[in-house]
């Protein structure tokens, strides 16, 4: 079941110059939300951006009935959204998409940039099942990292920065934690990073799941705009068959 609801902005927090967090409260209780799912937010009155913005879910609090998202200011609509105030309302469609696998014995979660955001809820899901996952976070520089201490409450955190300002210097694929053994790698971030991670996983014969963020109009499988080409089914919608895919299933 998907819902379209008015959610109230309970809290807004600037995480770094480019990203902000919104904690959105539902007056009705939330349905089950899976790690890797996303919301589709209507940002009104931006003439050049008619459509909703699909944003991955960063955290869910079933007691408070809140969904948190991390938004990166990358265009007209997200800039407008960054001006929203606490107690304002947003028209949100949720939860959309499938789920990251949540039954892995020893998962490595690899995030890049704002793609790190959904990995918190994924890590928390594992942590609540008694498995403390490894989370590897990549960024260009220290200033782009966010909420590291929060991730540390549910995961063993490893960091790579391209300039070496924190953690290991270099790309995530060069981080020493990649040499440890894992049952699966679950990743979300820029496509070149996910491709590199997927290639490493393939070489080591570890299953790998990636979360795609193709441009979409509807988010519910109607417009057929957000397709990715798969090996077994041809073009499929990222919004309904994904956003999480087995890396070796997609042609990229």
């Amino acid at each position: 079941m998907k819902y379209q609801r008015e959610l109230v902005v309970l809290r807004k927090e600037n995480l770094n110059p480019a990203c902000f967090l919104l904690e959105l409260k539902s007056t009705d209780s939330l349905c089950e939300i899976l790690p890797g799912q996303f919301v589709n937010i209507l940002v009104k009155d931006v003439a050049e951006r008619l459509l909703r913005r699909p944003i991955s879910i960063h955290d869910v609090d079933y007691n408070a009935n809140t969904i948190s998202v991390v938004v990166q200011k990358i265009g007209l609509a997200t800039e407008k959204l960054s001006l929203i105030n606490e107690s304002d309302k947003l028209d949100v469609v949720f939860p959309l998409g499938n789920s990251f696998p949540t039954e892995e014995k020893r998962p490595l979660l690899v995030g890049g940039g704002v793609g790190t955001a959904p990995l918190y809820y994924l890590a928390k899901t594992y942590y609540n099942k008694g498995i403390k996952p490894a989370v590897l976070i990549g960024a260009r520089t220290k200033d782009q990292l966010f909420l590291i201490d929060k991730y540390k409450t549910v995961a063993d955190v490893f960091i790579s920065t391209e300039d070496g300002s924190v953690g290991e210097k270099g790309l995530v694929t060069a981080n020493s934690v990649m040499n440890e053994s894992f049952s699966a790698i679950l990743t979300c971030g820029p496509t070149p990073m996910m491709k590199a991670v997927a290639n490493m996983a393939q070489e080591r014969q570890i299953s790998c799941f990636v979360s795609l963020e193709n441009r979409m109009a509807c988010g519910i499988g109607a417009c057929l705009c957000c397709v990715t080409e798969t090996k077994s089914e041809g073009n499929v919608c990222v919004c309904t068959k994904g956003a999480v895919f087995r890396a070796n299933e997609i042609k990229w």
Binding site: E48, L51, L224, C226, V227, T228
Partner: peptide, 21 residues
């Protein structure tokens, strides 16, 4: 249908090229 990308947002509208998938 057509290859991705099939969608672009333009002022007060959108352009699609789904191609009858």
């Amino acid at each position: 249908g057509n290859p991705y990308p099939r969608l672009a947002e333009t002022p007060s509208g959108m352009i699609n090229a789904v191609g009858l998938q």
